[in-house]
Amino acid sequence: MAPLVIETHHLSHAFRNRLVLHDLNLQVPAGSIFGFLGPNGSGKTTTIRLLLGLIRCPQNAIRLFGKDSRTHRLEILNRLGALIESPALYTHLSGRDNLEVIRLARQVDKKQIDRVLDRVQLSGDAHQKVREYSLGMRQRLGIAMALLGDPDLLILDEPTNGLDPVGIREIRELLIELSQQHGKTVFVSSHLLGEMEKIATHLAILNEGHLHFQGTMAQLQHLQSPVLSVETNDNMAAANLLQHAGYHLQESDAERLVVSISDRRQIAAINHLLLERGMSIYALQMHQQTLEDLFFTLTSHPETVENR
């Protein structure tokens, strides 16, 4: 197993007595693209701020590169590049000067500025003031700032915010290249599962400060279960009956019911149950749950997945 680059141990955090992170135990393997997923306000950015030491945390709660983040702050920051939410830039300076501010801190060769500008395709606009940049250009400059110094770990918070489809694809390809060809570890937060599905090797799903899933993409796909769409002459009565029988209803309205099932035999059982009660069945249709459905289930009805 690859060594862990990020580890959190029972990490919790409260803002003004309101607990926003609950007992988070993250394990990010070296060389992975770790998708950190969750809806807005789920605690992703707070976690990232804690990882970067921007918010104080208890000793030994966070380890990066095997070292305690509180006692080895500079050593750790020297090996990581970060983009937190919308990039914080000095808008009165040019793109190049913004990178120069970072370069001075990281003590890297000036040529690296040209290299990262080229990588995010901002070479032509490097001398322009950042206040004249579009949202997408600012985002790309933020990514260039994170890349400067060739860090071993990239922590990127919603890196594709504000980018057009071409820009999103370029960033996606860049992250895959950094991980696969250069062995970098990429920790990337997003609320877009579809985007993560294309690049992540590992995933964690956070909702309301609770970690609902952590593992590889294959492990997540394993959780995908079939669902049965049911239409009867009395959907309300059928819903009551199925719930009484212990089935979990994902959707229930006058048009149709969507029931979680574990295998095909349950279709026959449901059919039998409804017929036994004299109901007319108009449709029984099985679907495979998409990852998006699964994400929704994990973040809205986590108990149904945890029981699998």
Partner: peptide, 14 residues
């Protein structure tokens, strides 16, 4: 104004 404290304190500088 630019909320750049987060950028500054994510850099390897004391």
């Amino acid at each position: 104004q630019s909320q750049t404290w987060k950028t500054l304190f994510s850099l390897p500088m004391p």
